[in-house]
């Protein structure tokens, strides 16, 4: 009896630990997408950017032995790929959703093509911080092994929330995303701001990708992302374009993703694949919850095509 009780506690701790561990890519992609959408464009290609970031980060780490250099390269690869989206969408009468889907397919395809030689060699992983030193419980200790990237993402969410309100760049970005007429009247270069927003978003998504291959799960293979980049786009809608809420929503999605493995570790092996699908159910639930035939999306940037 005592075993199962500990088991349920174990599940809870494992879900929390898993949420922290799994949420980081969601967090980076959703912060990136928030930046992009605040500028008035949707980049659905961030799934492709995420996979490309994972591949290029891993490859860099394998070749140089420097995982942090891999993170940087992953971000740059993501920025470069998003630049394609940004430039194509700057042409007149180009639909950003369609370009995003094309970029998603292109990015994953390119990553699989270039990443073939890196499936076998193992790269040095990013280091952990042990924040569970105060506890005797190995469960807690393992749950609180945290990547610096997670803390960096948390700080970044707070910083972005602050910067959108308190910096000139934040005001310009929000103006361009909310009303192109207002932005034009103020003499801002709308195209340039949107390119910057998309590229910055791509950099963050690329960094999110490097976390997948260099920290957790910490390998490079073709099934690595399993749609996390796309789910993060839904998560932005759920978080109402607020960076701090993106952080909470990422933890929620991370927890849902960790549910299957956590139950398995507690000995519940039945329906493993069903629990594994929890994030997909959550995405559907979120989209149904935020969609309504009568209500427009509250907080959505006015220029974003999903809110028009």
């Amino acid at each position: 009896m005592e075993g199962t009780e500990l088991g349920w506690w174990g599940v809870l701790i494992a879900v929390i630990g898993g949420a922290i561990r799994v949420s980081t890519p969601y967090l980076f992609v959703s912060l990136g997408e928030t930046l992009t959408e605040k500028s008035g464009r949707v980049n659905l290609g961030l799934e492709g950017v995420l996979v490309m970031g994972a591949m290029s980060g891993y490859a860099t780490a394998v070749l140089t032995g420097q995982p942090w250099l891999g993170v940087l390269v992953a971000g740059c690869a993501g920025a470069l790929l998003s630049l394609v989206h940004a430039l194509v969408c700057s042409l007149p009468r180009v639909n950003d959703i369609a370009v995003g889907i094309a970029l998603f397919i292109f990015g994953t395809g390119l990553a699989f093509f270039l990443g073939k030689p890196f499936i076998n060699p193992s790269a040095p992983r990013l280091p952990d911080l042990d924040l569970g030193w105060w506890s005797d419980s190995p469960h807690i200790q393992s749950a609180l092994q945290i990547s610096p990237l997670f803390l960096f993402g948390f700080a970044l969410a707070l910083f972005l929330a602050w910067a959108l309100k308190n910096t000139r760049w934040g005001l310009v970005l929000r103006t361009v995303g909310d009303s192109s007429e207002a932005a034009q009247a103020l003499g801002y270069n709308i195209t340039l701001v949107r390119i910057a927003g998309t590229v910055a978003g791509g950099f963050l998504a690329g960094v999110g990708g490097s976390y997948l291959s260099l920290y957790f799960p910490g390998t490079w293979n073709e099934g690595l992302s399993s749609g996390q980049g796309l789910m993060a786009v839904a998560l932005v809608i759920f978080a109402r374009w607020d960076p701090v809420r993106c952080f909470y929503a990422s933890l929620l999605f991370g927890g849902a993703t960790a549910l299957g493995p956590a139950l398995q570790s507690a000995g519940v092996t039945a329906n493993y694949y069903l629990y594994g699908a929890a994030p997909y159910f959550l995405t559907l639930a979120v989209l149904i919850y935020s969609a309504s035939p009568r209500k427009a999306l509250e907080g959505a940037p006015g220029e974003v095509s999903i809110s028009r």
Binding site: N166, T167, R168, W169, L171, R174, T175, D178, S179, E181, A182, Q184, A185, L186, G187, G299, P301, G302
Partner: peptide, 24 residues
Amino acid sequence: FTLVSSMTVAENLVQGEAGLGAII
């Protein structure tokens, strides 16, 4: 109207002001 409706009156007034520093 060329106002940004999701912003406050103050934010709209400060918009486009010359010499607005990087940090407001």
